[in-house]
């Protein structure tokens, strides 16, 4: 059930998000997109648990290392501790993996469309990594962020985008970098331009804050995508 992992490393991703690398002696493996539960215990025994998406892919050849990326929720109970306090060498109780729906398996047929808002990119990054290890189908990531500094996995996404069958498109909602004229949320035009067509038979994964997921999923359905092929995960 609960097991004790050890923090091997922590990596700052943005001002408010951090990747935590965990050594897990008895990790059973996971599918890209699954999450795990983290439990914190105070000195007097009080406990608090939350679920976090796993950011890394796993294969039989992987070491017993998994990565979580945690976005600090203002006023949150667990995330501020994980982002600001937890350090390399600390023990951390975890349980998982959990969830069997918002997952991508390399043997799955058809193109893969990933659409993430903010830290909703975390499980999608696991899917991209799994695809880099074993995937052969085309993948597109449409990733909505507020501003250039909000991008999680900057260098990683650049590496992944270098692959012929991976296409990464960033969307800036508040402020874009020099040379990027478009500032604004994902809309019907952008879906038309950058998302696989309904007839392409893609499976689409949408993850982000609830209003983001509601909007994007509605746009996809309005554009003719089969709701049964649109999988969503929401937070907040």
């Amino acid at each position: 059930m609960w097991q004790v992992a050890t923090v091997a490393d922590v990596r700052r991703e943005t001002e408010t998000a951090r990747t935590i690398v965990l050594d897990v002696p008895d990790w059973p493996g996971h599918l890209a997109g699954q999450h795990l539960d983290v439990r914190l215990t105070a000195e007097d025994g009080y406990r608090a648990s939350r679920s976090y998406s796993i950011a890394s892919a796993w294969s039989v050849s992987s070491s017993n290392t998994i990565e979580l990326t945690v976005e600090q929720v203002p006023g949150g109970e667990v995330s501020p501790y994980l982002v600001e306090v937890l350090k390399a060498g600390d023990p951390l109780e975890i349980r998982g993996p959990v969830g069997g729906w918002f997952v991508w398996k390399p043997e799955q047929e058809g193109p893969v469309q990933l659409i993430g808002g903010g830290s909703g990119v975390v499980p999608l990054r696991a899917m991209l990594r799994a695809h880099a290890d074993a995937g052969t189908t085309p993948v597109r990531l449409l990733y909505s962020v507020r501003r250039p500094e909000s991008v999680i996995y900057v260098s990683d996404l650049k590496d992944l985008a270098a692959s012929d069958d991976v296409d990464v498109r960033l969307v800036y909602t508040r402020e874009a970098p020099a040379g990027e004229p478009r500032v604004g949320r994902i809309d019907a035009d952008l879906i038309e331009q950058y998302v696989f067509k309904p007839e392409d038979g893609a499976t689409t994964y949408v993850c982000g804050p609830t209003p983001f997921v509601e909007t994007v999923a509605d746009l996809l359905v309005a554009a003719g995508h089969d709701p049964a092929r649109v999988r969503t995960e929401r937070f907040g």
């Binding site: 004790v4 914190l40 215990t41 105070a42 000195e43 009080y46 306090v85 109780e93």
Partner: peptide
């Protein structure tokens, strides 16, 4: 009881 998360107090209530 398992491990203690050093410095964690929690929100409670």
């Amino acid at each position: 009881m398992g491990i203690v998360s050093s410095g964690f107090t929690g929100r409670r209530g």
